[in-house]
Design a protein around this nucleic acid. Structure first.
Lengths: 342, 342
DNA sequence: CAAAATTTCGTGTGCGTACACGAACTATGT
DNA sequence: ACATAGTTCGTGTACGCACACGAAATTTTG
C-alpha cells in the first residue's frame, strides 16, 4: 500500500520490458491484448503510481498557466487573487510553473472575448479565472473543455460547467450570516435596510444569492422584511440619491451592503447617525472605515487565498496529477475593527 | 532570472566537470581554492537552484515525519491537527513523505519525555508538535536543534526557541476580539464574567494571553473589569461550584471562556438564563450548543488547517528546500450558529 | 512458400542530480 | 631520480520515467 512500485519491477513481474509497460500505462497501443491485460492486472494489484520526480524529470517541461481577471487598481478587490497567485508562484516556479496574466475591461464584453481568443491561441496548460461575465464565461469554459485545458474558477461558481474546481464562498450562507450579525443583540422590532450599488457589469448572480440568504434570516426569525434599495454606480446623482434615503432612515438600525461598496454608504452617511453596517470585502476603503468604527462587520472572501489555492490546485492537477475536489470552500471570514489587521 | 541553469551548463562555463561543480555545491571539499571560487561565482551569477525533480530522484529517499501530540478522543481538539495531517499526507506520501504519530499523556510529564526519547532514537527528518508541556517542550526542542531536526510548532509558540515555524493564532488579539463580540450591542454598564476551567497540565501560557487581550478591551473601552473565576477540571465539586456562581450571576450579560470548555458552562447553566457565551474551539460539544443557540460565538483555531499547513511546511523545507516563514498566522475565525457547518 | 507488410516488443538515450571510484596531477621525502 | 602520500578532478552509474528507434515475431500477400 504505502510501498512504491516502479515500472521496472512491474516489467519483471510481467516478464516484459519497461517499454511495454510504459505503452500500456500511456495507452499508446502497439501491445497485444494478452500482455496488455496481464500488465493492467499487475498495475491494479500494486496500485501503481508513477514517481512524480521521475516523471517530471523525464518530461522536462514548463507548464504555462494563464490568470484571467478584470483590469483593476491595486486597491481593488481583484488585486487580492493576484497577490495570492504571486505568493504561490514563488514556490511553484522552481517546479516548472509559469504564469501569464491577462486583464480585460469588465465593462466591455468585446474586451473579454478578445482576451479569451488570445488565451486559446496560447494553448496554456491551465487557466485561473473569475467568471464575472456570466454568459461569455460559459462560452469560454466550453471551448477550453473542448481542447482539454483545465480551468479553475474563483469568486463565483458556474455549477453546471466542466471545470477543475471552484474556490470561493457559499454566497447564500454569507448573506444569512450577515443578517445575523446586523441584527445581533437588537430588538426584533428594529428596522433594517439593504442598499445595493452595482455596476452594469457586476456579477448579479452572487449578489442575488447573498440577498437571498439575508432575506431568509429575516423571514425565518419572524422579523419584518428589510427595505431594499438599488442604485447604479454610474448614476450621476448617486450621492444625492443615497443621502435622500439615508435622511429618511434615521430610525434604521442597520444597513446591509451585498458587495464591496459599503464605503460609499459610509461616505454618504451623516456623521451623527450611528447605523450598523455590514458589507463585503476588505478593500482599502472599507478597512479604513472598519478601523474608524463606521463599518461594523466585513465578510471577507479571502481573495488572496483564493488566488493562492487556485494556482496550487492547478499545479496539483497538472504536475502532480493528483485529484482535486470540485469545490473548495473559503470560510465566511468575519472581520471587525479588532481583527482586520491579521 | 526565471531561466533554469543546470549543473552541466555551469560545468561547461567553468570548464570543469559536473563532479567538480557538484563538490562545490555540496561543500564536499577536494576542490582547489581557485576553481572553487570560479564556480562559486558562476553559481551566484546564474542564481543556481537545483532542479527539485532531479535532486529528489537521485536521492530516492523517504522522509520520516513524526507528529507529537497529546493522547485524545476523536471528539477532542487534538484530533483536528491529526485530520489535517492526514489530508495533507494523502498528497505528500507520493512525494516521499511518511508520517508516524506519537501520542503522550498530557497529564504525565514522564510520558511526554519517554515519547521524546523514542522520537530522537528514530532520527526523523522532521517533527510536528504542540508544546503543551512548556518546559519539557523547550528541552526537547533544544535537543532536536542539536541534532538538526527541524520542528514545526502548532497551537502555541515558543518565541525564543529555534524552530522552523509556528502555525497558530495571536492569542492576545483573540481575547480582545472575544471581548468585543461578547459586549457587542450591549450597554457599557452591563456586567461580564470570565470563567476558566483548566486541567493541571493545560497550557496556561496561551490562556493567560487570551485573558490579557480580553481585559485590554474592557479597560480600553472604559468599562468595568469583568469578574474572574477559575476552577480545576479535576475538582469533584466542579458542577456544584459552577452552579453557585451562575446562580449569583443572573444579571450577568455575558461569559467568556478562554479555552474549549464552554460546553461545561452551558451544562451548568439553568435553562432559563439567556447569558451570552463566547468560547474557543469547535469541538463536538461546543458545536452542538452553538447550533442550539446556547453558545453565541466560538473562536476557531482551525486545528485541521494547522496540521495540514504544518506538514506542508515540513515538506517545503525538507524536500523542496524552500524557505519557510517563522510565523504563519491562522485567522481569528469567528463561528456562529450560522456558519458552523462550513 | 517466400517476400512484404504489419504488429509487437526490447533497447537505448536523456532528463538533472548525487555520489563513488579511480585517474591524473602535485608535493614531499629519501 | 624515484617512490609515496596527498590533492584535485573526471567518469560512470543510479534514480524512475518518457519516448524514439529498430529488432523480432507475426500476419498478410503474391
Amino acid at each position: 500500500m504505502t510501498e512504491k512500485t516502479t515500472i521496472k519491477e512491474i516489467a519483471e513481474r510481467a516478464r516484459v520490458s519497461i517499454g511495454t509497460v510504459d505503452r500500456v500505462i500511456h495507452n499508446r497501443g502497439e501491445v497485444s491484448p494478452d500482455t496488455r491485460k496481464k500488465i493492467k492486472k499487475i498495475l491494479e494489484e500494486v496500485d501503481y503510481e508513477p514517481n512524480v520526480f521521475g516523471r517530471n524529470l523525464a518530461l522536462n517541461k514548463v507548464f504555462n498557466i494563464v490568470v484571467l481577471l478584470p483590469k483593476h487598481l491595486k486597491s481593488e478587490y481583484w488585486h487580492g487573487p493576484v497577490l495570492g497567485v504571486e505568493a504561490s508562484l514563488k514556490n511553484l516556479q522552481s517546479l516548472g510553473i509559469r504564469v501569464r496574466y491577462e486583464y480585460y475591461d469588465q465593462n466591455n464584453v468585446k474586451s473579454f472575448q478578445q482576451s479569451c481568443i488570445a488565451i486559446l491561441r496560447l494553448k496554456p496548460d491551465g487557466i485561473l479565472m473569475a467568471p464575472v461575465l456570466h454568459d461569455e464565461s460559459i462560452d469560454f469554459l466550453r471551448r477550453c473543455h473542448d481542447v482539454n485545458i483545465p480551468v479553475v474558477l474563483i469568486d463565483s461558481d458556474l455549477p453546471h460547467e466542466n471545470v477543475l474546481t471552484f474556490i470561493g464562498q457559499d454566497a447564500h450562507k454569507s448573506g444569512y450570516l450577515a443578517a445575523k450579525l446586523l441584527s445581533y443583540g437588537l430588538e426584533p422590532s428594529q428596522q433594517f435596510m439593504i442598499v445595493s450599488i452595482t455596476n452594469a457589469s457586476d456579477n448579479n448572480f452572487i449578489i442575488e444569492e447573498r440577498l437571498g440568504g439575508f432575506r431568509s434570516f429575516f423571514s425565518e426569525t419572524g422579523r419584518g422584511a428589510p427595505k431594499e434599495y438599488s442604485f447604479s454606480q454610474e448614476d450621476v446623482d448617486l450621492t444625492q440619491n443615497l443621502q435622500n434615503i439615508i435622511d429618511t432612515s434615521q430610525n434604521i438600525a442597520g444597513i446591509f451592503v451585498p458587495n464591496s461598496k459599503s464605503h460609499l454608504i459610509v461616505e454618504a452617511l451623516n456623521e451623527t447617525y450611528s447605523t450598523r453596517i455590514v458589507g463585503y470585502d476588505l478593500i482599502e476603503n472599507n478597512k479604513e472605515f472598519l478601523k474608524q468604527g463606521k463599518i461594523d462587520f466585513i465578510i471577507h472572501q479571502r481573495p488572496e487565498e483564493q488566488g493562492q489555492q487556485g494556482l496550487e490546485q492547478l499545479y496539483k492537477h497538472i504536475v502532480l496529477k493528483q485529484p482535486v475536489p470540485r469545490f473548495i470552500s473559503m470560510p465566511l471570514d468575519i472581520i471587525t475593527k479588532e481583527n482586520c489587521e491579521i
